[in-house]
Amino acid sequence: MQLHRDRDRFEAAGVRLVLIGQGTPAQARHFAETLNVDLPIFVDARREAYRAAGTKVGTVGELLGPRSVLRGVQRAVTDRVYPGRTVGHPAQLGGVLVVRPDDSIAYAHLADDASDNPPNDEVLAAARAAAQR
């Protein structure tokens, strides 16, 4: 999770950056306060939005594969974010969508495994393009 550091850049681009998580509002609030995340968070307890967004549920290999473990270690070192107790469906994978007011999808990157996150600059470029149209 690095996007919250770029919040101002997304705001300047004229787009709204929001997080969608699982669990309950109280769990999401705890997450936000613990990691000092200053972004709007919405919870999707039934994972209705996750399904509509086209995200997938990972296999054991996709969650625990060497690629994921290595990147997880790397992130823990660089970001000082340590895997904690899991809240939500443990195998649910995430993703990023950029949606325009006319309901068109400007950009989609849906995670193929647990370590598959798009570069922030790629998302920002898509967001800027979406706001200019």
Partner: peptide
């Protein structure tokens, strides 16, 4: 409601923690 007035970037989290 999140993208009614301007584009929205939706980040679907894997899970918390």
């Amino acid at each position: 409601e999140l993208w009614r007035d301007r584009p929205a970037v939706l980040v679907f989290l894997r899970h918390y923690g």
